[in-house]
Design a binder for these strands. Structure first.
Lengths: 350, 350
DNA sequence: CTGAAAGCGCTAACAT
DNA sequence: ATGTTAGCGCTTTCAG
């Protein structure tokens, strides 16, 4: 029923080889026959068969992107960067949104199924040893985004440094009782940001107690959501210790929740409690959040370039590339507003 | 290099047919050999080859989802509904984010490439006659989501009715000078919502002038973004006509921008200007927006079920399924708050 | 420059 | 119950 190269070969009185050559832009076809074949193909509405090509070429031109469920801006921006880059390449992506860890197994299986995809990109998820081993065994090209594993190409933003910087900013502003609202510690970025926070405090000789940190245990999006921020802030305020004068929040979405919780008690930022958060999502500007800007779109772009490179050169040693987040100063923790680069914000790239 | 059914057949001293049967859970294989084959496959890390299967089965278990760039909540929620449903089915989706109309051609081509996908879902985009013809010619199963074409299965929300209802709400609240902030008229939903708005006004005998409507011409996301709302509201306020006492905004994201623009001039909702918007995204609650709730997640779910059904029964006549949006009353346009269903909101289903 | 033929890895119909 | 064989539609030698 569907038209194949055989059909058009017969029609054009040539061999299928010649037809194939034409469609693959190979040399060694006379302009004459090339044109004739193209015309016939057009007339017959010929479409090459993707699976057949993939089988013969041993190349599916498909990538799998596995990410924790992409409801937050970070994932979306990353995805967007990927898509725009993809457009130029002829690759397509299979989107694999992960709700929980068991699903990773499933997607890993799908991705590793021979011939399905040429490579996989894992976003923001700590890969277990077991998964790592499986991937290595099957030799499927992988790049990690917003996570790290020495075995694979990794693209990270310096979460530790970013958190450190953000906290330092608070300290320089004169704050001494500083709390942190963190996402779920299952998340790799959350872990790193927590470390950065602690170290910044310790380095500057601040007293520090784990009671200052509230980690969300909200499953949804690893705790990177508004409600988690709201609840965590409420808890922090109720822990019955002297109220912090500043908090570092592990993401902007959470910070929005934090702001809500504060508002409920009549507290304002920065007056009562200064707030610094992380990500610089689109809405951050709207909430005047001072936050750490992450080059999400660019990371998505790079991930695609890297995976395609890796597919071409599987043997090269894995490389780590790091993006440094930049502090965007708006209004939620006071401070100056002299320079302006990102819209209404001042940026320091440390 | 990679292990195939031939390898495992040789190892197990059986024919490849038997091996194939085992992996396809077909009968007519003795438990004995079945177990033996499974064991050997396991040992050799056998993975079936997706492209080969697709070629032989004439079925790729892949869907293409084409949507205008998914940076807004609507798309994301829809996507999420799709993904969750997909998990049970064994299908994967190729995500095709469209930035502009020319790209549709590209993706259409990719989608129609034989064997690539078993079906396509188009979200929130008016399909041109040309595209429609192409799809029909290639007989590829299609379902439309948030658009309509008699030629295909369509899932819509009643945009017209929703807008009508929202506007009516404003009218019942006693408003007479009502404006509308619309997205780009290129977007189908925007067109429908505009019609609903106009008709509601006319039906109730309100004077109506096109000057009350500001349509965004912001390209990004067809004008469904915060900035577009901000700019449009600014323009409306500057048109030098008596200030409207209420506005209907074609989406929540835009409404957030509208609120900003108002705030800048010291105007508050609902006191100075009442605001009703559309979508009921997650953040709508945070902004206390009175808005039309759309069952986005459910629509995504249904789209998947429909396309899979359509793939199985290509001959059935196309069906239209409609979701009715519900008015969620919060605070941006006053009114009562007696009942509560969606969180803090009252819902009327008309 | 072009045709023929051998795969790519798997499914499915047909024998046995 | 199991082996054999013929495709699925395309790419890619290898002759000519």
């Amino acid at each position: 029923m569907p038209v194949t190269i055989y059909d058009i070969a017969r029609e054009a009185h040539v061999g299928i080889g010649t037809v194939s050559r034409v469609f693959n832009n190979r040399p060694n076809v006379s302009d004459d026959t090339r044109i004739r074949i193209l015309a016939i193909a057009e007339k017959m509405h010929y479409q090459p068969h993707a699976s057949a090509q993939a089988l013969a070429r041993k190349h599916a031109y498909t990538l799998s992107v596995v990410m924790p469920f992409f409801t937050n801006y970070f994932s979306i921006e990353v995805l967007k960067g990927m898509q725009d880059t993809l457009a130029e390449t002829g690759y397509d992506i299979l989107l694999h949104g992960v709700n929980n860890t068991e699903q990773v197994d499933d997607f890993l299986l799908r991705g590793m199924k021979k011939g399905r995809v040429d490579g996989m990109i894992f976003v923001s998820m700590a890969l277990s040893d077991k998964h790592t081993r499986q991937i290595l065994e099957h030799k499927i090209p992988v790049v990690l985004l917003d996570t790290y594993r020495p075995e694979f190409d990794s693209i990270r933003v310096k979460n530790y440094e970013g958190a450190f910087h953000a906290t330092q900013h608070l300290i320089r502003l004169g704050h001494t009782r500083i709390g942190m609202i963190n996402a779920s510690m299952r998340s790799f970025p959350a872990q790193e940001r927590c470390r950065g926070f602690k170290d910044a405090l310790q380095e500057s000789g601040h007293e520090f107690s784990d009671r200052c940190i509230v980690s969300s245990d909200n499953d949804k999006q690893d705790g990177f959501n508004k409600n988690a921020g709201y609840n965590a802030m409420k808890e922090l305020l109720e822990r019955g210790m002297p109220r912090p004068t500043a908090v570092f929040v592990s993401s902007d979405v959470q910070a929005i929740g934090v702001l809500s919780a504060m508002e409920e008690r009549g507290l304002r930022a920065p007056g009562d409690i200064a707030v610094v958060s992380y990500d610089d999502i689109e809405l951050a500007k709207h909430f005047h959040l001072t936050t750490m800007h992450q080059p999400m779109y660019e990371m998505g772009e790079l991930a695609i370039r890297k995976i395609i490179h890796r597919i071409q050169f599987p043997a090269e040693p894995p490389a780590l590339e790091s993006f440094t987040p930049a502090l965007v100063i708006r209004e939620t923790c006071g401070g100056n507003k002299e320079y302006s680069q990102f819209d209404d914000a001042q940026v320091q790239t440390t």
